[in-house]
């Protein structure tokens, strides 16, 4: 059964799970190949793995942002030791009886040490309490099915209840096909949650990382009071191949990058990973004092 392959701790601890000391080992299978050195997929430069990790997984030569898993992201964003996870025991079912679906989910649970494609919880950033969600593209390409939708929805409700800002790092290929129209409805559900947060005048900071596309880009990820993105991140509604097939021409290389979106007025800022915590801290600080007129 599913629970057998899941690590034991989660059977008991369903609300609070402390941030792992070493985020890389918590993410188990690393995006960077095992070993001492790693080659940048953009510029081909070789860097020491340790060096790269110290550098927020950004290539020292060309600035390429390597993928970060959810644990690494939490570690890089929140204040040390301040993270309490929500809903770590929620898992997917198979509403469409889709062939092999749950097997694939189980495999990704093992691979990533996550219960689903988003990690949610609360913590602090430079002393400011926040509710945070971090998507992990290693888990079913970060796709959004019922669990991802519900976890994000509950996180938003907690943010409303506690009057905490909500911070979300997106990394997703879009809605999860294997749950059919229920995945589509998660776009509506998360957006309805944000509508309520908005009405309560809660703060939502959306950070789009590589990739943020399809149903995730067309729902909560685009609805931040502040929409930020990491350099070079692929962000868009339709896939590149589908657009090329539709319009029968090749697209420019920078199409649907964070920089392209910034240029077209879709983002507030493109923020280098090294600066992300500072920028978040600045926004949170400004919001910690109610504006006075």
């Amino acid at each position: 059964m599913l629970k057998d392959i899941f690590y034991k701790r989660k059977k008991y601890a369903t609300i609070a799970s402390p941030i792992p000391k070493d985020p890389v080992s918590a993410g188990e299978k690393k995006e960077i190949p095992e070993g001492l050195m790693v080659k940048c997929s953009q510029c081909g430069a070789i860097a020491y793995t340790k060096e790269l990790e110290k550098n927020f997984k950004v290539c020292p030569s060309c600035g390429h942002h390597f993928p970060m898993n959810a644990f690494e992201r939490v570690h890089a964003t929140l204040d040390e030791g301040h993270f309490f996870e929500f809903d770590s025991d929620m898992i997917s079912v198979d509403p469409l009886s889709f062939p092999d679906y749950l097997d694939k989910v189980e495999k990704d649970m093992e691979k990533t040490n996550l219960n689903e494609a988003v990690l949610t919880g609360e913590g602090t950033i430079m002393g400011h309490p926040v509710v945070i969600g971090v998507m992990d593209s290693r888990f079913r390409m970060g796709s959004m099915g019922s669990v991802v939708g519900e976890k994000i929805f509950r996180a938003i409700e907690r943010a409303i209840e506690k009057k905490y800002p909500f911070v979300l790092f997106s990394a997703s290929g879009g809605a999860r096909m294997q749950e059919g129209v229920l995945s589509l409805m998660q776009m509506a559900k998360t957006s309805a949650g944000l509508a309520k947060l908005h009405e309560e005048r809660g703060l939502f900071i959306s950070i789009m990382t590589n990739p943020t596309t399809g149903g995730v880009s067309a729902s909560f990820a685009s609805l931040g009071d502040y929409n930020l993105a990491e350099p070079g991140a692929l962000i868009g509604f339709a896939g590149r191949r589908i657009i090329e097939q539709t319009i029968r021409q090749e697209l420019p290389k920078d199409f649907q990058t964070a920089e392209f979106l910034l240029q077209h007025g879709q983002l507030d800022q493109v923020v280098h990973r090294k600066e992300m915590r500072n920028v978040l801290g600045k926004i949170l600080d400004i919001h910690s004092v109610r504006g006075q007129i």
């Binding site: 898992i91 079912v93 559900k189």
Partner: peptide, 15 residues
Amino acid sequence: RYDKFAAMGQYTTLI
């Protein structure tokens, strides 16, 4: 409307 969409989706817990 909110409750309607809040209820959409199917999931379970490990327990």
